[in-house]
Amino acid sequence: MSDVATHEFQFASAEHQRETAISGIWLFLASEALFFGPIFLSWIYARLADPSAFDAGARQTDLTIGIVNTALLIASSFAYGVGLASIQFGSRRRMVVWLLFACTLGLAFLGLKFGVEWRSDLEKGLFPGANFSIQGPTRNGAQLFFAFYFFSTALHGLHLIVGLGLVAWIISQARQFTPKRHTPVLIVGLYWTFIDIIWLVLFPLIYLIGRAS
């Protein structure tokens, strides 16, 4: 493909199309933020109703995995950033390498989260319901915590999987992108970072607040 930018017929120029696409993704992210908003709010609200029992649930989580996972995600956003810079500076090959690296980190996150952490949570009987293993006075609050925990991590995981799909798609299309024409790389990057930011809110909710008191 040549570097001469084309554009769809409703736009005046390729630059116009690019700006429009980028505004679009920002608005979409605003919408996504409001999508996650209610969980965060109800999370805080539910904890306030019965902090001690709620926190008893939170203390059953695996802080080490949480920290490692956070590091993985931050690193992968960073890797994506370097990939984006690479294409801007003209190296398509380096972009692919860094994006692959970002993907790997994302996959590692998923593996740890669902393969290791969830599995051990389930084995420990932490899924709310009749078989919930925490007994005694904190049982209800802890169940409430784990309802939030499983719900929100599953949802975040789904977003991450979609994100991985998008990054894979970018990699597969790498040949199209040039220093001047790489809007999709930028857009997917914004989404990828957004998932990361959601996790940065979930992380303290899941692992830290309950341990703080």
Binding site: A49, D50, S52, A53, G136, P137, T138, N140, G141
Partner: peptide
């Protein structure tokens, strides 16, 4: 106090 005593220590 009766139904959820842990909430009202």
């Amino acid at each position: 106090c009766i139904l959820t005593p842990d909430k009202t220590p």
